[in-house]
Design a binder for these strands. Sequence first.
DNA 1: CATCGTTTTTGATCTGCATCAATGCGGTTG
DNA 2: CAACCGCATTGATGCAGATCAAAAACGATG
Lengths: 250, 250
Amino acid sequence: MTRTSSRTQVHSQDCGDCPIRHRAVCARCESDELDRLEQIKYYRSFEAGQTVVWAGDRMDFVASVVTGIATLSQTMEDGRRQMVGLLLPSDFVGRPGRDTSAYDVTAATDLVMCCFRKKPFEDMMLNTPHLGQRLLEMTLDELDAAREWMLLLGRKTAREKIASLVCIIARRDASLQLRASDGELRFDLPLTREAMSEYLGLTLETVSRQMSALRKEGLIVTEGKRQIVIPDFDRLLEETGDDSDGGFLI
Amino acid sequence: MTRTSSRTQVHSQDCGDCPIRHRAVCARCESDELDRLEQIKYYRSFEAGQTVVWAGDRMDFVASVVTGIATLSQTMEDGRRQMVGLLLPSDFVGRPGRDTSAYDVTAATDLVMCCFRKKPFEDMMLNTPHLGQRLLEMTLDELDAAREWMLLLGRKTAREKIASLVCIIARRDASLQLRASDGELRFDLPLTREAMSEYLGLTLETVSRQMSALRKEGLIVTEGKRQIVIPDFDRLLEETGDDSDGGFLI
DNA sequence: CATCGTTTTTGATCTGCATCAATGCGGTTG
DNA sequence: CAACCGCATTGATGCAGATCAAAAACGATG
């Protein structure tokens, strides 16, 4: 299966404070529309751990992540939590046409979001076709990501889940990072063990144990608090259970 | 959390052979666009068990389910399978802007699909805003469903998974079925134990055992091959682990 | 109606991950 | 520097669901 997700291709052209992430598309929008966007946008900052909105709360804006990481999570009555969205810079939050959040939105790291009041944003969508088209494309990408995630949750072992997550972060982060000549890959893993466990449908103890196992086997190296080095990306990939081709790497 | 999914509201207005499912929206499209749609559409039938397309295969059409049930599945190298989409009549298949299928598409029951050659369909999307808007809305609904599904896969027990699936099918099917006066709900469960296990991330043995357990406790009654009766829907709902309000029932 | 293939049920056993519990490790604060 | 806090690691044990295996139910077919 060759999965040429447009997510990856677009990523290198991101513009953090553009609501629709893809500079090439924005440039095609009429300039007065862009001006109007400028007028209705504002920034909000959050500290790591803070909640942006709770599931069920009124949410009268849509937004895109400028810097940091936000998560979407669902919680069951008894407290069991499952992350259902991981938002990196340039990712979009919020659903046009709905006025309450369906998920807890949380700042996993210090976070800056670029917000747009929802009503004006929706109005603009009506007469700016590119906006809707771009949003559709992004939503389809997210749906693909969600389905990949479902395979992970439903069928992968703990070890495969961990390897997959590390590879996913590495891929999404790597465009911004340097890659050493020998294929070594160095980047930040900005999630706590607990956040990782919520992403993977595991307990944090299992996450910790499996991280230790991968470390002992030399598949990953941890440097300091959150910095991670992957000496051989392809070898780690083999632990994910995914198709070896994968369609695209980095 | 009140989840007023537009999926449910729209459902009662479905038109099976309309590509975009919602008659009220279609009616707003200019009639010559509708005519052109008519010209490029054609029907395909499949028997239960047949594969519509394999992951990675060329897919030069988009389609909507007319009758029957189709599934989207991902397969790992060693054969582990996870269902990632369950398509009932009026649901949409295929991604504009991608020419290979990312998933195995399979007929879970006898199936009729209404297909549109992709190129003309994409052309038409460009100058029929409503088409894109409707598609965006449907994709957002699917994303919400996928995220609900992720919670099920990552955090629910086998028992909760089974109860959830039965309730999901009951809800989606129920609009077409009769509901007895005493709150009893009778409908078809058109999935094999294996298909259920692929949906839920379980083995078919576990599915069978948990179905038996629910049957013994009187939460469900099976009549003949695939007919299911839920004597008390609310009581079954309590077994799903979901918020008791749920936002919307049936 | 007997036979056969498919699907489902049930049983016995095993195991991967959860659970419960304690210890370690920086980083921050008084 | 000591005390403390949040986070991570490691250990001991239990259990839900997987696995392996067999029998039963059901429908189709000659």
